[in-house]
Write a protein that binds this DNA or RNA. Structure first.
Length: 223
DNA sequence: AAGGCTATCAACCGCTATTAG
DNA sequence: ACTAATAGCGGTTGATAGCCT
C-alpha cells in the first residue's frame, strides 16, 4: 500500500520510507528537533526533501501518533466537527489527540463520506436545542425521513409524521448522528417530545450506546 | 487459480499563510 | 512595505491487500 521508492533527477528519493530512513529521521529530530525542514534531511543523512521528512514525522514517526481503527467516539466527533468546520482537517485533528489530519482526512473519504448516498448534501449538526420547527425544516429538505425505533422497524414513523410539521427554512439537515439519536427517541417517546426544546446534551445522555450504528438508521436522510 | 475490482492509506503536489530579512 | 523562504494545509494519486467473480 506504499509507493515504490524512486529518485528524481536531483537525487531526491520519493515513495515509501525504509526502516533505516525512519530511524535516521526519528533519531535526528529527537536529538536536535526540526529547526529547519528544508535543511534537516541533509544533516540527518537523508536523500529526501524537507517536505517529505516533515510529513513522515508528523503523520507517522512523531511520538503519540495513534495508528489503528478509529473508535466510535472519535468517529462521532469527526462527523460533528466536519459539519461545523468543514474540511478543516488540521482543526479537526486538534480535537482528536494522537490522530493526524491526514488520517482523519483518509478516514472521512474512505469511511464516513462514502457511506452517505447523496454526497452533495452536507449534513448540519444542530448544536442548539432542537425544536419542532428545526425538525420540520430538516424534514423539508430531505427526500424522505423515516423514523424507526432502536430495533430498526418503523413503528414510530406515524408519530412524527402526524406531528403537523410545516416550516420551510432551507439548508437544514440532521446529521446522521443526531438523526439516529432522534430516531431512538421517536421509538420510545411520543411526538410531543419534538414540540419541546431538547438539547443535544439531553439527547446524547442516555440514548447513545455502542451497539447502535447510526449509519444503519440515518441513511434515509441522504437518499 | 487467476484476473479484475475495490478499499485503504501513505505519500505527493500545489497552493496559501506565515515569518524572516 | 516588499520579497523570498519556509511551514502548513487540503486535495489527489498510486501501490497494494483483499475481496469477488
Amino acid at each position: 500500500m506504499v509507493r515504490k521508492g524512486s529518485y528524481d533527477r536531483n537525487g531526491i528519493k520519493k515513495g515509501a520510507w525504509s526502516e533505516d530512513e525512519d530511524n535516521k529521521l526519528r533519531s535526528y529530530i529527537l536529538r536536535y528537533g526540526h529547526w529547519n525542514w528544508r535543511l534537516l534531511p541533509k544533516y540527518a543523512g537523508l536523500a529526501r526533501c524537507g517536505k517529505s521528512c516533515r510529513l513522515r514525522w508528523v503523520n507517522y514517526l512523531k511520538p503519540g501518533v495513534i495508528k489503528g481503527n478509529f473508535t466510535k467516539q472519535e468517529e462521532n466527533l469527526i462527523v460533528e466537527l466536519h459539519s461545523q468546520l468543514g474540511p478543516k482537517w488540521s482543526s479537526i485533528a486538534a480535537n482528536l489527540p494522537g490522530r493526524t489530519d491526514n488520517d482523519i482526512k483518509n478516514f472521512w473519504h474512505t469511511r464516513i463520506h462514502k457511506r452517505r448516498p447523496n454526497r452533495n448534501q452536507i449534513p448540519k449538526i444542530i448544536t442548539s436545542p432542537i425544536t419542532t420547527a428545526e425538525l420540520a425544516s430538516s424534514k423539508e429538505n430531505c427526500d424522505h425521513v423515516t423514523f424507526s425505533n432502536e430495533t430498526g422497524n418503523e413503528s414510530a414513523s406515524s408519530s412524527i409524521n402526524n406531528a403537523n410539521i410545516n416550516t420551510t427554512s432551507q439548508n437544514d439537515y440532521f446529521s446522521p448522528l443526531h438523526y439516529a439519536e432522534i430516531t431512538v427517541e421517536a421509538g420510545n417517546l411520543s411526538s410531543e417530545i419534538f414540540a419541546s426544546n431538547l438539547s443535544v446534551e439531553e439527547l446524547e445522555g442516555g440514548i447513545y450506546d455502542d451497539d447502535f450504528s447510526y449509519y444503519d438508521y440515518g441513511m434515509d436522510l441522504f437518499s
